[in-house]
Design a protein around this nucleic acid. Structure first.
Lengths: 209, 209
DNA sequence: GCCTCCCTCCCCCGCGCGGGAATGGCGACT
DNA sequence: AGTCGCCATTCCCGCGCGGGGGAGGGAGGC
């Protein structure tokens, strides 16, 4: 039997997926978790073979949960289960150690096959997701190297503050703010603060390097 | 038998919900739809007793689909099935004629009971949703009355365009764009285009009426 | 030592942007 | 028919914003 843990913040989705998977004679859903903390806890206790992990969860997100879960020494294979509409960071989850990813609007058969594949140590990769991930990767800014100060300024732009208030908040002169912004715009490939704010809203604050 | 149609843009969610509902001996899932257009089409042809309607769908949203569906003369009871995390406009769907709403993280039992209740003409109202809906109502901007032109301008601001390009796109003068924006800013309670773009990104384009 | 990167600040310049006030048109209501 | 209100349009004015270029000092790497 393939022992499966389902992680999703919606109880109905958990129950529905469990029903789907239980329909397969070799799959047993041993537990479900509603958030990242529960997932880490359950995965260490239940020792599942496969963890189906939703990415969009309140609190600890799916990527972070994946990282902690794998760090805890479990041998479970983590499969990301996500929708494309909410442009989630599939790549983050894969970087965190997820073995594969499936789309929430995949065929039920595909889900079952994916679980089997993951249990065998293979990578279930939804072809349609692969395309999107590839697109996201090329879309990904390869050189979003922002200094600490530049990130701070960008963050405040993302709160809708004008330069004068940003300067006051950071206790620097307005000229310096503008200098930083010029650099930020160039780095993000945008032309003004509005586009920068939208970039931030969609892509999130870039990593600290 | 209670004839049910499930509308959700994720195939896995559709299949999962169908499995859950088929577990009840009095419920029969006669069809599923992936978007609003399909939903209207199927509901008129299958004559279901209950339609489970997800709100967040690409293209025609759940609220609009509900409206068209009911306008087509069906006797189906529409029950909104939504998650709270994406602050969807449950009220819009209820205004459109939905008989009740359930949360995606409700108990599976609650879903089954909700379908039975809706089939009897009762309103299944998730108590937890009720609380949130109430909170959303106070949170709701009471006066986001934008004219068609103002919405167009706002949308283009949300794409990061400067006034000159917005003017060219709408084939009006730049002065007019700015005048519209002044009105939009006042209506949204923001002070500049950056905040307006962020408002749009978070709250979405306000309804047409 | 030297070099590079980052943070800080300055100059000037020109355009973009938002506020205020005013006009004509069009439909709704009386 | 009159008139009230909303919408789209235009003008001027002053500040905000972004580009270009430069410059000093401090931290870390070679």
């Amino acid at each position: 039997m393939i022992r499966v843990v389902i992680v999703d913040d919606h109880a109905l989705v958990r129950a529905g997926l469990a029903e789907l998977l239980e329909g397969d004679s070799e799959i047993e859903v041993v537990a479900t978790a509603a958030n990242g903390e529960e997932a880490v806890d359950l995965a260490t206790r239940e020792e599942p073979d496969v963890v189906l992990m939703d990415l969009s969860m309140p609190g600890m997100g799916g990527a972070e949960a994946t990282r902690k879960l794998l760090a805890s020494g479990t041998e479970a294979r983590v499969v990301v289960l996500t929708s494309l509409s909410a442009r989630e960071r599939i790549l983050d989850a894969l970087d965190a150690g997820a073995i594969g990813y499936l789309l929430k609007d995949a065929d039920p058969d595909e889900l079952v096959r994916g679980v089997h594949a993951a249990a065998r140590g293979e990578s279930p990769l939804s072809p349609r997701a692969a395309h999107e991930v590839l697109a996201a990767r090329t879309d990904q800014r390869p050189a979003v190297n922002l200094s600490a100060r530049e990130r701070e300024v960008l963050q405040l732009v993302g709160e809708g503050l004008p330069n004068k208030l940003i300067a006051r908040r950071l206790e620097i002169s307005e000229k310096t703010v503008k200098a930083h912004l010029t650099q930020v715009f160039a780095e993000l490939g945008v032309t003004d603060r509005t586009q920068a704010a939208l970039w931030l809203e969609r892509n999130g604050l870039p990593e600290s390097s």
